[in-house]
Amino acid sequence: MPIGITWTVDDADTMTANEIYGEVLTRLGDENPRILAMTADLAGSTKIGKFQKKHPERFFNFGIAETNMMGFASGMCEAGFIPVVSTFAAFAALRCAEHVRTDVAYNRRNVKIIATHSGTSFGPAGTTHHCTEDLAVMRAIATMTVIVPADAYETAKATAAVIDHDGPCYVRIGRSFEPPLWKDLNFDWEIGKAITLREGTDITVIACGPSVLHAVEAADRAERQGLKVRVLDMHTIKPIDRDAVMAAVMDTRRIVTAEDHNIVGGLGSAVAEVVAESGKGCVLRKLGVADVFSPHGAPEDLQHLHKIDADGIEETIAEVMKMDFEQDEDWEDEV
């Protein structure tokens, strides 16, 4: 029986995104004794430690030993448990990559990975703690569901959804200081279904993670210039919502993607694959970390540098609107 979220997170305004995730996981743990929580000396930083307080017998701290933890998670599934594993994205996705692929995904282990401090959200920490490759790695692993919630509320929804989902999942969140997109949990959220936040016919911005809020702001600014910008919150990178992408292609013919990730292999690539395979014409511009190692710095500064803040997205919308491309009489009969 699906659990879902049947209650509200009361003190959400005073909680950071990761704390809300920790709180939601704890409540899910109240209802489902099969849920286990695991971390590698980051109970406090990832907030999975909230689960520890309530359910100490189902919480495991492996010390600073991520790959070992991933293997344990795979093994504990044998006894019917649903391990939820939390550490920084760089360690969950990169250090543990082979363990995730072989021990978890290939063996159809029902492990949920909640990777925090992703992208450049832990900006000042530098390259060792940035993670702008995880979506590419996780997307390339067969059977893996890959989710990038836009804020704390979506993280809460995603946490409940991945527990219900049968199969390995990778949920990628930030350091938790990101401003919220939603005000509460009163919205529909489903794995694999993009959310249309703004309707528009001139251009579509497809974003994930903290870039979604910036895309909305950029769209609102562009609207004041007379443009109708569609904004899609593409919280599920895999399986990607092909219908939403194709609707954007057919309705707007211009797409900008925005993500806190390398422009190689993440959301932009996933969208590009759908567009290219469709044979339909469309201008596509990918925003993100432009296949470089990001410098370190405050996350806001880095988002500005990588043009995934409202300024950068607004500027790119204007550029893409100016681009000329072949357009024949009848789009509909192509291919």
Binding site: P124, G126, T128
Partner: peptide, 22 residues
Amino acid sequence: TGSKFGMHLDRMKVPGVDASTG
């Protein structure tokens, strides 16, 4: 932002550092 020093020292940025660790 813009300085040589992140929390973890980077061999590619900080003179005297022999390995980018963290």
